[in-house]
Computed example of a mutant assay.
Amino acid sequence: MTASCTVSSHVLYAVEGRPAEGVRITLFKWEGDGFTAVASALTDADGRVSGWETGPGPHKLRFDTGEWFAGIDVATFYPEVEISFTAAEGHSHVPLLLSPFAYSTYRGS
């Protein structure tokens, strides 16, 4: 039986200290010869996407930040942010703290 895990994310707009609602996030999984998109969703009113089921191994999240910033009429240096990580059995949470000219991430719980 293949081990399973779940992936979630939370995007915070650090300039205003609020959740970033409506950011498109795409989950990719390594499939032997490259990454394949396996899920995509918009962050909810609390800036969250949760419950993506996948298997352990290399993954990445792509955050469509340029589209989101355009929607709030703010210029940004980053049209997208990609975060690569290795999902382990269980749960992996990958938050993104976002501003127009900087971002930060960490392994969440």
Rank of each mutant, 00 (worst) to 15 (best):
G17W: 03
W52L: 03
K29I: 11
R24V: 14
A41I: 00
R107N: 11
L12I: 15
G55S: 13
V38I: 15
L61H: 10
G71N: 08
F85I: 12
G34P: 04
S50Y: 06
S84T: 09
H93D: 13
G51V: 11
T54V: 02
S9K: 01
S9Y: 04
E89C: 00
G34V: 13
K60I: 04
A102W: 14
F101I: 13
H10F: 08
A41Y: 03
H93L: 04
G47F: 07
P95M: 05
L96R: 10
G108Q: 13
D73A: 11
H93Q: 09
G17F: 01
V81N: 09
Y106E: 13
A39M: 04
V94K: 10
D44T: 09
E67I: 10
T26I: 06
P58L: 14
R24H: 06
D73G: 01
R107E: 14
S109A: 12
A39V: 05
T43C: 01
V38P: 00
T76G: 04
P100W: 15
P79I: 03
S50L: 05
L42V: 02
E82M: 07
S8W: 05
G17H: 04
S84P: 00
C5W: 04
D33T: 12
D73T: 10
E53R: 09
P100F: 14
T76I: 07
E21I: 00
Y13G: 03
M1Y: 07
D33W: 05
R107C: 05
D44K: 02
G17K: 05
E82K: 07
F69E: 07
E31R: 05
A70C: 03
A20H: 02
A87N: 06
W30K: 01
R48A: 06
D73F: 02
P95Q: 07
E89M: 02
V38K: 01
G55T: 15
H91C: 03
R24K: 11
L27R: 11
F35M: 14
M1R: 03
K60W: 07
T2F: 03
T105W: 09
H59A: 04
S8P: 01
W52G: 01
L27D: 07
R107Y: 10
G51F: 11
V38S: 03
R24W: 11
V15M: 09
G55Q: 14
S4F: 14
A75L: 11
A37Q: 13
S8A: 14
E82T: 13
D46E: 15
G17T: 08
G17A: 07
L27H: 13
W68L: 10
V74N: 09
T76Y: 07
V94Q: 14
D44A: 07
M1H: 08
L61N: 09
A3L: 12
F63P: 01
A14K: 06
G17Q: 10
E53G: 00
L61A: 07
I72P: 00
C5Q: 04
S4H: 12
A41H: 08
G90Y: 12
F69P: 02
P56N: 02
W52S: 02
F101D: 15
F69L: 06
A41G: 08
V49W: 05
T26Q: 12
V38N: 02
T6Y: 08
G22L: 05
T65F: 06
E89T: 12
V11R: 03
K60P: 00
A41F: 01
I72T: 08
S99E: 15
A45W: 12
V49M: 05
P58D: 15
K29W: 02
W52R: 04
S40E: 15
G47Y: 08
H59S: 05
H10V: 03
F101E: 14
A45T: 12
